[in-house]
Design a binder for these strands. Structure first.
Lengths: 346, 346
DNA sequence: TTGAAAGCGCTAACAC
DNA sequence: GTGTTAGCGCTTTCAA
């Protein structure tokens, strides 16, 4: 690797002159600058960032800690962040936790060792105490999920309201028993969505008995499949279900297709998020659209301002983006039980 | 930030002793090691990788340069790589090019400055000459696309055969005019797929006149929409279409749903890749499944071995994974033109 | 078993 | 306008 010293020797200059020329310092003559730049280009000089960092320069690298990049929520986030960061000369390190706190810890150790300038994290349910400690030493923002031990900078969506809306829509249509397949209550998002679901039930004067709840790993398509099978096989199967994560929605949709369940006549469904295939699934999936893109951009811009300006504004910050119900064909009032209609179809 | 010197001062030791204790050097007594480790943990010491790198240590960071992480091919790749690298203590820097060679160049400059240990790249159609130069200085592998100027280490899929299979299937069913929507021929993948398409046409004794070809940005869902609209509006609309990228497939499927085109009676369709929604689209999408996961894992493992062992094996390496046709309901023999059958449906 | 000192590549304070 | 020098945090001789 070519160093400033190599250039200096070739040009019979001192390293500091070369360094200054490369930094476009006022004190260096245009002619010298030109010669230096020329030589640098010819020799293929690339500045060594490690050396710069040792002189106190910031790393220009931001860590993105998420459960799984295959989840479209997270790939959307990664894309938005990457785009915005590149524009300002930042780089993004991708760290996947698979929702495992020990993996999360290992990643945070690595990021700390790399002296990343900042971290954007979707924390696991209960981050390790060392993770908490590590994050104290680096500017960071939480995304989607919010764990109080990790500080009060957070960008997320209104999970409570998302599921309240989804469920209220089903309640309004007169469904007597409504199922819910969502993430675990240990996750802040899981807890909020579940609360939203329950709130809509009681808001519709339905007892909690009317809700059949299946909780499990939010990133598991397979769990979505199994959960919906259990729900439909139960003694008092629901006439409608609300979903509490993108991956679970994917699993549920696949399984309903496979089982050839008639939607919405036999079962109404409200999904979570809005993926490409959702609009063409069966009669079109009614779902909760979330402004993930805007949220991610906001988060990225916020962190970069935090990193590039004096951190005088390290106060609490929370941004809650609202979701909105997208009505398509997968929801309808329940069929009248034990009183088959004369007409076939609508 | 705590340094080895801080620990040394507190324990009344020299920095070198502390360094050796932390590195578990044989010459240090167990007792001293214990005291040092204790203090390090208490004080929250995290080794400074920049300093290590200046002493010649490798960076343990690999750059992943791809067009767009939202494309599920690439998010799958990123996930597989991330998982495998984490297991061996490597980190992944995510660089999105948006298929723009200048953005690609900027990313490669940054990666070089960071002295990444290696690079995995899905190159743009014509990488900048400086990009080529930069890559010469760092171990790298090409993924999916292969540009000869970037060396001969490559992991990809058999693009030619993928489209040959897809098209041959349509030819066998007797389609007289077959459309193709794919990426530009400037891209190595685009060129191969197009060749595969043409090869199947001539293999079926169809003249090239029988092919209606629409090329455009391979990552643009919107282009897929427009292309299929143009294809169907043409004077001699095809009775079947083969698709040449995941994103284009998504666009085409959406548009066909929107236009309410009857598949496969009015039009047969073969997709590219196998996304979650493909199985439940219309009658189920017949498509080409590609072993992206295996390819990515192979690539990651290969690069890491290259990085962790002596580079005595820097010879050419190419791995070509085959795709396979997944038959679902979206393809059928063409309807007899101008001779409507008496029977309705099948 | 431990310490002192040099040096990785760069920048900045201090000469001249 | 340019050179000299010190030092960032760490590893690694070379001494003791």
């Amino acid at each position: 690797m070519i160093t400033t010293r190599d250039i200096a020797e070739r040009l019979q200059l001192s390293v500091s002159t070369v360094g200054r020329a490369l930094a476009d310092d006022d004190r260096i003559s245009e002619q010298t600058k030109f010669r230096v730049r020329q030589a640098a280009a010819e020799m293929g000089y690339v500045a060594n960032r490690a050396a710069r960092m040792m002189r106190g320069a910031s790393s220009d690298v931001v860590g993105l800690v998420i459960p799984d990049i295959r989840n479209s929520f997270y790939s959307t986030i990664a894309h938005e962040l990457s785009k915005n960061m590149e524009a300002q000369g930042f780089q993004l390190i991708l760290s996947e936790t698979d929702d495992d706190r020990m993996v999360e810890l290992r990643h945070l150790r690595e990021l700390s060792a790399s002296r990343v300038a900042g971290v954007i994290i979707v924390p696991t349910a209960r981050p390790h105490s060392e993770s908490v400690k590590l994050l104290k030493a680096v500017p960071h923002v939480q995304l989607l999920r919010k764990h109080s031990s990790l500080g009060s900078q957070w960008f997320g969506v209104n999970d409570f309201d998302a599921l309240r809306q989804a469920t209220a829509h089903l309640v309004e249509q007169g469904h007597p028993r409504i199922g819910y397949v969502g993430g675990p209550a240990e996750l802040p998002t899981g807890a909020e969505r579940l609360k939203g679901f329950r709130s809509a039930l009681s808001g519709g004067n339905l007892s909690s008995e009317a809700g059949c709840i299946e909780l499990g790993p939010p990133s598991s398509v397979e769990h979505g499949r199994q959960a919906v099978r259990r729900l439909l096989a139960g003694p008092s199967a629901p006439t409608a279900i609300a979903l509490g994560s993108v991956q679970l929605t994917l699993g549920v949709l696949e399984e309903l297709s496979r089982l050839d369940v008639k939607v919405p006549s036999e079962l109404s469904v409200v999904g979570f998020g809005d993926e490409p295939g959702f609009s063409w699934w069966g009669p079109g999936l009614t779902t909760i659209g979330l402004p993930i893109q805007e949220m991610a951009t906001g988060c990225g811009l916020w962190l970069m301002r935090r990193l590039t300006t004096k951190p005088d504004d390290d106060s609490a910050y929370a941004s809650v983006s609202p979701g909105s119900l997208i009505l398509r064909g997968s929801t309808a009032p329940p069929a009248q039980p034990r009183r088959p209609s004369r007409r076939k179809g609508s």
